[in-house]
């Protein structure tokens, strides 16, 4: 069973510290939700783990199955099993989803090994059927002119094909109407299982009605300040984030 360990992580963007000592362990089969107000470092956390060059990890450790990934390039981390579902996925004009995924899978093979084309398409179509995605979808260029919902569906399909050990889902629910949200949630729920650990980053409780987390963490000012089970999310929904801030202020005083 895979495991992602984040230990006392500090992350800066252009010398400004955003994540200030965050620790969290995600085991295979678990779904963790990180909630929190805007600007508390939720997205920074996911991008830093994925290896975005703009984010500097100043101290701390990130281990995947006991091995540090921090010295690895973004693509090596991806191939090791880290998947980031982007809040704003990039468009890649002229490159079809089918070709893009094929290149991504090809990149995981050893030098000189060729992907088996018919096996690839069989698997792709099986995943698409599972996720209830129309066959025509994969001949479109990656995210090019996609609606918000299509972009997220494209992320989910990629995740299903690349079969990561850990999926970091950055505000996957933002900009989605309820139908799109349900499709995305169904996709994640379909993939849930001992082989996959999930970190759901979300601002709203709404997503958690569809993807029920095992753990909920509240992030504030670059740290996890409160952890609990799914009931914590309901509490946040009812009371907002202010009571957490007050609790923190009291604790400090």
């Amino acid at each position: 069973m895979s495991q992602l360990e984040i230990k006392n992580l500090h992350v800066s963007i252009a010398d400004k510290e955003i994540v200030k000592g965050l620790s969290l362990t995600i085991k295979g089969g678990e779904v963790h939700a990180i909630m929190g107000p805007n600007g508390t470092g939720k997205s920074t956390l996911s991008k830093a783990i994925a290896g975005h060059p703009d984010y500097t990890i100043t101290s701390g450790e990130v281990l995947l199955d006991g091995v540090s990934i921090l010295e690895k390039e973004a693509d090596e981390r991806a191939r090791a099993g880290i998947f980031l579902a982007f809040q704003y996925p990039s468009e890649i004009p002229g490159v079809s989803i089918a070709n893009f995924l094929r290149a991504a899978l090809q990149a995981r093979l050893a030098d000189g090994e060729e992907i088996d084309a018919s096996g690839y398409y069989k698997r792709l179509y099986a995943k698409m059927d599972l996720l209830k995605i129309d066959r025509k979808f994969t001949s479109r260029a990656v995210n090019d002119g996609f609606s918000g919902g299509e972009k997220k569906r494209c992320e989910i399909l990629q995740m299903a094909m690349l079969e990561p050990k850990v999926a970091l889902m950055d505000e996957t629910d933002s900009g989605l109407d309820i139908d799109a949200l349900r499709i995305v949630a169904d996709g994640v729920n379909t993939m849930r299982g001992p082989g996959l650990g999930v970190l759901l980053i979300t601002h709203y409780q709404r997503l958690l009605d569809y993807i029920v987390p095992d753990y909920v963490h509240v992030m504030y000012d670059g740290r996890i300040v409160k952890s609990g089970d799914k009931t914590l999310a309901h509490e946040l929904e009812a009371k907002g984030y202010d009571w957490i801030k007050k609790e923190l202020a009291t604790a400090k005083a």
Partner: peptide
Amino acid sequence: EDMIFYMQQRGLTEGQAMSLAVNG
């Protein structure tokens, strides 16, 4: 840079990512 990072996050090396962008 974001487009390259996006592709790298799917496992392509920087060179493969650029080459795919150009071919696209």
